Simulated scan of single mutants.
Amino acid sequence: MPLAVYILGLSVFALGTSEFMLSGLLPPIADDMDVSIPQAGLLISAFAIGMVVGAPLLAAGTLRMPRRTTLIALISVFGLGQVAGALAPTYEVLFVSRVVSAFACAGFWAVGAASAIALVGVATLIPRIPLPERKPELRRELLIYRDRQVWLAIAITALAAGGVFCAFSYLAPLLTDVAGLDEGWVPTVLALFGVGALIGTVIGGRVADAHLFGVLLSGVVASTVFLAALALLASSAVAVVVLSLLLGFSAFFTAPALNARMFNVAAAAPILAGATATSAFNLGNTGGPWLGGTVIDAGLGFASTAWAGAAMTVVAAGLVTLAMRHQRAGRTRVIAKGPESQEIQGAQTATAESSRL
C-alpha cells in the first residue's frame, strides 16, 4: 500500500487511542481530580459527545475545502486539545479539552476515513486530494434521514457500541476491585481487548461482504453472551481476562458490518453516510459510559455495568432482526411489482446486495 495510507492509519491510531485510553486510567484520574470514578467515566462520554456533534457538522462544513489542508488543521487542533487536557488544572477544563479534541477527531474521521509524527506525515506525505468534479449537494444528502432503515442503522450501531463500552469503560476498577487483580494487570488486559478487536476486525471485515446481517446478528448476540458472563463471573480473575479478549473480538467483529450497513442504506449520501456512522458509534460511546456510571452510582457495583451493557445489546439484536424483516419485505414488494420496479429499486439501493445473509 502507498505510504500515505500508513500515515493516515497512524493518525487514526493516535486519535482512537485518545478516545479509549481513559478506560485504564479512571481510578488515578478520579483521585487526581478529586471526583468519583463514574464522574471520571464521563470524560469518555465527553469525547464521544464531541464526535457525535463534530462528525456531521465538519463533514458538511468542509465539503469544498482542500482535503489535505483540512486534515492538517484538524489534527493540529486535536494535538492542542490533548496538550490542554494534559495540563488541565481542574476536572471542568479537562472535560472541555476532551470535547474540543473530539470535535477535531470527528472531522478527521469524516475527511480522511496524533501525534506530532502523524501531523508531519500528513503534511509532507499525503498527496493533494482533489475535490470531486461534481459539487456535493448537502440538501439532497439530507434526504437520507427520511428513511427508517437509516434510523434503524443508527440505533443498532449506537446500542451495539454502547453496550460494550458501558462495561469496557469501567474495566479497570472491575479488574482491581472485583476480580482482585493488581493494578499492573490493567494495561495487559486492555491490550488483550485490543488483540481481540484486531482479530475481530480482520475476520468481520472479510465475512461481512457476503453475510452482512449474519455478522451483525451473531456479533451482537456474542457480545450479549460475553457481557452476561462477565457480570456473572466478575470475581474470577481468569474469567475476566479471557472475557475481555472475547469481548474485544465480538465488538469489532461486528463493527465492519455496522459501517457497511450504514453505507448501504445511505448510498445516496456518500459524504453524510460516513459522518452518520461515526456519530452513531459515538452516540453509543456517550450513552454507554453514562449508563455504566449511573448503575455504579446507584450502588449496584462495577459488575453491574456488564448487565447494563448486555441490556443495550439485547435491544440492538432485536433491532437487527427488525431491519432484516423490513428489508426482506421491501424485496418482496419489488419482486411482486415486476422487472421495472426491480430496476428502480436496484438503482436506489446501489450496494444493498451485500446485505444478504
Rank of each mutant, 00 (worst) to 15 (best):
L74N: 13
V225M: 08
R356C: 00
I154S: 07
T17S: 08
F13V: 02
S36Q: 05
A275D: 11
A260D: 00
G85C: 09
I203G: 06
C105T: 15
L245S: 06
A323P: 01
T157N: 02
Q327P: 03
I72F: 04
S218F: 05
A280I: 01
T351R: 15
A167R: 04
I117V: 12
A172E: 07
A116K: 12
L227V: 13
L42N: 09
V334A: 10
N282A: 05
G50M: 06
E133S: 13
L3C: 01
A228S: 14
Q348W: 12
A298V: 04
A234L: 07
L300D: 03
P127K: 00
L198Q: 02
A208F: 05
A317T: 04
T305A: 04
P289M: 08
L26N: 09
A88M: 09
W185K: 07
G309L: 03
D34S: 13
I156H: 08
L58P: 04
V100I: 15
T188Q: 10
I7N: 02
P28F: 13
R146Q: 14
M312G: 07
G346R: 15
A118I: 01
G184H: 09
E133M: 05
L192R: 04
P289L: 08
L138M: 11
D34P: 01
E343K: 15
M324G: 01
R134G: 03
G204T: 09
L232H: 07
G204A: 08
G301R: 09
A191I: 04
A280E: 02
L57M: 14
L246Q: 01
Y6I: 00
L181P: 05
L15D: 01
R64M: 10
L283H: 07
W185D: 02
V238T: 15
T224M: 15
D297S: 15
E183C: 00
P56A: 09
M324Y: 10
F78I: 01
A316R: 14
I117C: 03
V164W: 00
E19F: 14
D34M: 11
T305H: 12
P38R: 12
A46N: 04
D297F: 03
W185H: 09
M1Q: 10
G200Y: 10
E353D: 10
V186L: 04
L192E: 05
A208L: 10
G309K: 08
A239G: 00
A158E: 02
A158R: 12
